[in-house]
Design a protein around this nucleic acid. Structure first.
Length: 569
RNA sequence: CGGGGCAUGGCUCAGUUUGGUAGAGCACCUGGCUUGGGACCAGGGGGUCGCAGGUUCGAAUCCUGCUGCUCCGACCA
């Protein structure tokens, strides 16, 4: 490809609408343009990179036994009504109707579609296991699309669905996919971690998010410094911290005027935070009050609280009125002395505390010498705290570190949730009818590209990992009007093309500075510069984008040298 | 959903307070000059100032409504 023919309009300035690096750089590098909120056109550079990402995914999916299909994006409402998700999905779903008033949606995912596809055809265990996948646009009508391709309303996704005859088979499929995902992200040259994730309402089984590590990420993950444990902060389990044993003193009430936050209480009573008990009041969707208690220096993990209850509930912060109605006093709440029947959840670590301080359910008063094991009645004890840096790894006990990441892929087991509601059954070895056991596995293709940029950039622009770069090499003749330079550049270009290298020749008649700036911005992994020295001294420069390392080669050896350098990138 | 901000040429923005024939830089076209890190000189093209109403002799500017974009906000009692 020649730069004079390439449609990649670069921008010198950053468009005002772009907030995160990947969005800014993709706009500036001429990769994408916005059509409407959360909707983007992929221009040649972006599409080249996306095609490479998709190709890696295809190869690994096929190698793992997946078969590619293409299902409609427009889906009939009926199948969504069968599973109940037509109403559950809510405003997130793009809905359309045809001229007859029949309802459809633009697929946000394809569990319904794929399950109804196979339910009439797969009748026997002999046809299993089966893995079907597709790569196509998905639609979600996000409340607030933002961050460019990271959270768009239309995005490219690979989704694979596995069908097995039993749980054991499903777990095997899961393992195969987990390994395939590990290979995919490794091949793309990204720093990532498979983290244990919360799959809450979707159903039991396991789930891992493949998270690309980057500061701009939306998810917080905790990872162990010693073993390979990693989990999203919502999911991360925590071990109980035992306090040093003390003789239990008698419960006492003290005055703490205006100390309505835990910090003020600790200050007022000259206590360390880990000797205090903090309260958080939630209210579920039926307005029932749920009080949660954690140690003063800890935070409540509301996902864990939600998961304690059978029904899928939604939690909000409680209003003062409902706290008062339960016999509590906002700012001074305690598990002691609440109205009977009030739901109280206490973190397991709190139960191990001695002579701690908690609210007294009375204005400007706190209890001291609270001993939960002795003083708390009718409470639910569970792990409900949020992990933080330095906490012990649940697997090996070493301290964990926190980092941010971008969820690029997720694997999870579905079990029989969809096969049951959609009556997708088969006959097993004993002639018995059983629902298919499913798993589903997604990779956000366009988001992965954004994540790659988010993880690989500097002040000058993008630094592509070689495997997914739009071009592997750019050749820059300093002065394209100089025929000698251009000739050398053209020769190298042809030679590299013949060697199968993905190469761009920047034959534009612009000044060198312009071409260098663009090369850095677009982020080609390797740059070959042809200048006066190449003509006069047969010296051609090769420069690695990522670390700025430069070497010189003669014209005879430059192509081989380029290939060698690419191999080591 | 609540609250702010913005909308002027392809991009970044000024002009709006105080109404009087629309500007700059970058980008684009032509010519010249220049060529190892976003040059320079000269000339030129391009905007019904988001949309719809209203006030006025006159509206980018004032008023009303709408649309789009953008940021913030659920909270540790």
């Amino acid at each position: 490809m020649r730069a004079t023919r390439l449609y990649a309009p670069t921008l010198r300035e950053t468009p005002a609408e772009a907030e995160v690096k990947s969005h800014q750089l993709m706009l500036r590098a001429g990769m994408i343009r916005k059509a409407a909120g959360g909707l983007y056109t992929y221009m040649p550079l972006a599409w080249r990179s996306l095609k490479k990402i998709m190709q890696i995914i295809r190869e690994e999916m096929d190698a793992a036994g997946g078969q590619e299909i293409a299902m409609p994006i427009v889906q009939p409402s009926e199948i969504w009504k069968e599973t109940g998700r037509w109403s559950v999905y809510g405003d997130e779903m793009f809905r359309v109707s045809d001229r007859h008033g029949r309802e459809f949606c633009l697929g946000p995912t394809h569990e319904e579609m794929v399950t109804t596809l196979i339910r009439d055809e797969v009748r026997s265990y002999k046809q299993l296991p089966l893995m079907l996948y597709q790569i196509q646009n998905k639609y979600r009508d996000e409340i607030r699309p933002r961050f460019g391709l990271m959270r768009g309303r239309e995005f490219i996704m690979k989704d694979l669905y596995s069908f097995d005859k039993d749980e054991e088979g499903m777990n095997e499929s899961y393992k195969i996919m987990y390994d395939a995902y590990t290979r995919i992200f490794s091949r793309m040259g990204l720093e990532f971690r498979p983290v244990e994730a919360d799959n809450g309402a979707i159903g039991g089984g396991h789930s891992h998010e493949f998270t690309v590590l980057a500061e701009a990420g939306e998810s917080n993950i905790a990872y162990c410094t010693k073993c390979d444990y990693a989990a999203s902060d919502e999911k991360a389990e925590l071990t109980v911290i035992k306090a040093t044993e003390e003789a239990m003193k008698e419960l006492d009430k003290v005055s703490t005027p205006d100390a309505h936050t835990i910090e003020l209480v600790a200050e007022c009573l000259h206590l360390p935070l880990d000797k205090t008990i903090k309260a958080v009041a939630f209210q579920d969707d039926k307005d029932e009050l749920i009080l949660a208690f954690v140690r003063g220096d800890h935070d409540v993990n509301d996902v864990k609280v939600v998961n304690l209850f059978e029904d899928s509930i939604e939690l909000h912060m409680a209003t003062d009125e409902s706290i008062i109605a339960a016999g509590g006093v906002p700012g001074f709440m305690s598990p002691i002395g609440l109205k009977e029947g009030t739901k109280v959840v206490v973190d397991a670590t709190v139960m191990e505390m001695f002579n701690a301080c908690a609210g007294a359910n009375e204005k400007d008063k706190h209890y001291i010498n609270v001993n939960p094991k002795r003083d708390f009645k009718d409470v639910i004890v569970a792990d409900i705290r949020m992990i933080k840096e330095g906490d012990a790894c649940p697997h090996c006990g070493a301290p964990v570190k926190m980092t941010r990441g971008i969820e690029a892929g997720q694997v999870f087991t579905l079990g029989t949730k969809y096969s049951q509601s959609l009556h997708a059954t088969f006959l097993d070895e004993n002639g018995k009818e059983k629902p298919l056991v499913m798993g589903c596995y997604g990779i956000g293709v366009s988001r992965t590209m954004a994540a790659a940029i988010e993880q690989n950039n500097d002040e000058n622009g993008i630094i592509w990992p070689k495997a997914i770069a739009p071009f592997e090499v750019v050749i820059v003749p300093i002065n394209a009007k100089n025929e000698d330079q251009l000739k050398i550049a053209e020769d190298i270009y042809e030679e590299l093309k013949a060697k199968g290298v993905d190469v761009l020749l920047d034959d534009r008649k612009d000044r060198a500075g312009v071409k260098f700036k663009d090369a850095d911005l677009i982020g080609y992994p390797l740059r070959i510069t042809v200048g006066p020295k190449s003509v006069e001294e047969d010296s051609i420069e090769l420069k690695i984008r990522r670390n700025g390392e430069m070497v010189n080669a003669t014209k005879a050896e430059v192509a081989a040298k380029a290939v060698e350098m690419l191999e080591n990138l």
